[in-house]
């Protein structure tokens, strides 16, 4: 190349220096785009995740230890009172939160993993294979949650594992469908053709070029789905086909507490119930925030 071309070099894409802004402004407007509810959701969720993660260090009592001090109201000793077996409600709530997060998280991650691969492969290959697999996915989706849960619990026995499997199974169709749609939309784009011209193998095209570009809707669906999954685990446990007592679970605790509501022991179900509601609420807020954040029309701005 010659001299003229140095003149031809395009100017850098970013123009000038951006105006300086305070840390808070950059955090609030930059990351949250001024979305106050998103900020609240993330803050709440951060607290809940912290509590769940460090649960064993935070508990004041053994969550499974029964004592003669039954149905004590909240006090300095038992922050959220005790239940009908004299167990500490605070310690049980913290432990439940941890277990529910793990079960819902494992279930949703499993569903994302399996569902994405199904969607990616079906969308990319197409044809009869796609038709066949997607009809199977339709069949899974047509079973109600409770039916799948009952059948699986019957086969696998009531355990944490079976609830994880139920969560995986019930959520696979969501991800298979979302990723398949995204794959169909992206597989004919020019950069995929460019990769093919660059000698990329089919495997590399699917997993290296296509997959990273189809995953963004998962983040949004995942966080909304996690909220639903936490709720479902609690519902199943509440109904007695999920996590079984004495293992603490928010659903189990609410269920047990309802029997003592009439006796005035409100703390037994209200406290875990509020934690459950807060968890679902904060996950939903985060989902909404992510949806706005990852919207290409907004992120392009």
């Amino acid at each position: 190349m010659n001299m003229q071309d140095s003149a031809l070099l395009p100017a850098p894409a970013t123009s000038g220096a951006p105006p300086r802004r305070s840390m808070w402004n950059r955090f609030y407007f930059g990351l949250f785009g001024g979305d106050f509810l998103g900020l609240i959701g993330m803050a709440l969720l951060a607290v809940l995740v912290f509590v769940a993660a460090f649960g064993p260090l935070l508990v004041t009592h053994d969550p499974l230890l029964t004592t003669p001090d039954t149905l004590l109201p909240p006090s300095a000793e038992h922050w959220l009172g005790t239940d009908h077996f004299g167990r500490d409600v605070f310690s049980r709530t913290v432990t439940s939160l941890r277990i529910d997060f793990i079960v819902a998280g494992a279930g949703v991650s499993g569903a994302i993993l399996i569902g994405s691969i199904i969607g990616l492969v079906c969308g990319y290959i197409g044809g009869w294979f796609d038709d066949l697999v997607m009809r199977l996915v339709d069949i899974i989706q047509s079973f109600p949650l409770l039916l799948v849960a009952m059948v699986l619990v019957l086969v696998m026995g009531p355990s944490v594992e079976s609830i994880v499997v139920v969560t995986v199974l019930i959520n696979i169709p969501i991800y298979a469908r979302v990723i398949r749609g995204e794959t169909l939309r992206k597989k004919n784009l020019e950069y995929i053709d460019a990769a093919r011209c660059s000698g990329a193998s089919e495997m590399s095209i699917v997993f290296r070029h296509l997959m990273p570009n189809t995953l963004s809707p998962i983040v949004v669906h995942g966080s909304l789905n996690l909220a639903a999954a936490v709720g479902n685990v609690a519902v199943l446990s509440f109904l007695g086909i999920g996590i079984r007592p004495p293992t603490p679970d928010l659903g189990v605790m609410v269920a047990e507490g309802t029997n003592y509501l009439v006796q005035g022991a409100w703390w037994m179900s209200i406290c875990p119930g509020l934690v459950l509601a807060t968890t679902i609420f904060s996950l939903n807020l985060m989902g909404d925030w992510l949806e706005g954040r990852l919207d290409p029309r907004r992120s392009a701005a």
Partner: peptide
């Protein structure tokens, strides 16, 4: 060709 881009200058 014209060099640079429309908004390349300082603000």
């Amino acid at each position: 060709p014209l060099i640079g881009s429309v908004w390349g200058g300082s603000s």
